[in-house]
């Protein structure tokens, strides 16, 4: 599982302050830290409190790339902000995200094609998040079809089945697992899968435990990536271990360190 480090997000006070004062220190520290602990991408989100999302996104992308060589995952509902970010990305980025809503898909897949970007597609429509796996998979298929229509390789598409907190939508858990399995049958090569990991534990008291158990369960159902806390040591160790058990990495005694140091 690829970890998309979630820490560069304007919802965090230090990042919001960095954006406000145009001081890249905190952003770059988190970029380096997440890279050093094995994240594969860095999520970039300007947060809710910014007035000019376009220029904030551009600035965040620029200063992050000064500190890290990781590809970026541009996280916004404002597609102009995402496009501003894509313009300054030095390597193909990931667009986070697009729901299965036609006009949004048209815009996002067009951008993805133009900038050679990967795309996170959400298994939801105007009607919201479906309750069962079948409806999620049907929306995933719409995303696959639109992706293909723009000539984008399906392996550049990451489907997010959408996770609800386990204390609120407990019945969604098995549906998400089923969706992860079925997405792999949609095409050959199949799309990839991603989740926003910490959604599963929102409002609970054992957040880190729930996050990492969910991560390894989802991995065994085919999860490829997660937007997650890339500095959670226990999560990293659990993911590294699951990769060994799933025969994705070759075992050695220092396998956790090897996973962490993959960017060094």
């Amino acid at each position: 599982m690829i970890i998309i480090g979630e820490r560069i997000n304007g919802m965090f006070r230090d990042i919001a302050k960095a954006i406000r004062e145009k001081d890249p220190t905190a952003v770059q520290e988190w970029a380096k830290k997440q890279e050093a602990m094995g994240s594969g991408y860095l999520d970039i989100n300007v947060g809710p409190a910014v007035s000019d999302r376009v220029s904030a996104m551009r600035w965040l992308c620029e200063v992050t790339q000064e500190a890290s060589k990781l590809p970026l995952c541009l996280d916004s509902t404002d597609y102009d902000a995402i496009e501003a970010g894509l313009e300054v990305c030095k390597q193909p980025a990931m667009i986070n995200s697009v729901p299965a809503v036609q006009e949004k898909m048209d815009r996002v897949f067009q951008m993805a094609s133009k900038y050679n970007a990967e795309v996170i597609g959400l298994a939801m429509s105007e009607e919201g998040i479906p309750k069962d796996a079948e409806s999620r998979v049907a929306l995933a298929m719409e995303l696959v079809a639109n992706c293909d229509a723009h000539g984008i390789p399906i392996s550049n598409l990451y489907i997010d089945p959408l996770v609800l907190p386990c204390n609120v939508g407990q019945d969604h858990g098995p549906e998400v697992m089923e969706t992860l399995r079925q997405i792999k049958l949609l095409s050959d090569p199949p799309p990839k899968t991603v989740v926003g990991l910490s959604n599963i534990s929102l409002g609970t008291k054992n957040r880190e435990l729930i996050n990492r158990i969910f991560a390894v369960m989802a991995m065994s159902n085919g999860l490829d990536a997660a937007i997650a806390d890339g500095c959670d040591e226990e999560l990293i160790a659990a993911v590294a271990t699951a990769r060994i058990i799933l025969n994705m990495d070759i075992y050695c005694d220092s396998y956790v360190d090897v996973f962490k140091n993959q960017n060094l």
């Binding site: 070759i250 075992y251 050695c252 005694d253 220092s254 090897v258 060094l264």
Partner: peptide, 17 residues
């Protein structure tokens, strides 16, 4: 032994990357 092959490379690289 593939596991030892990998571990040994790690041990050597810890002495000098």
């Amino acid at each position: 032994d593939i596991n030892i092959a990998k571990q040994l490379n790690i041990l050597i690289s810890e002495m000098s990357t």
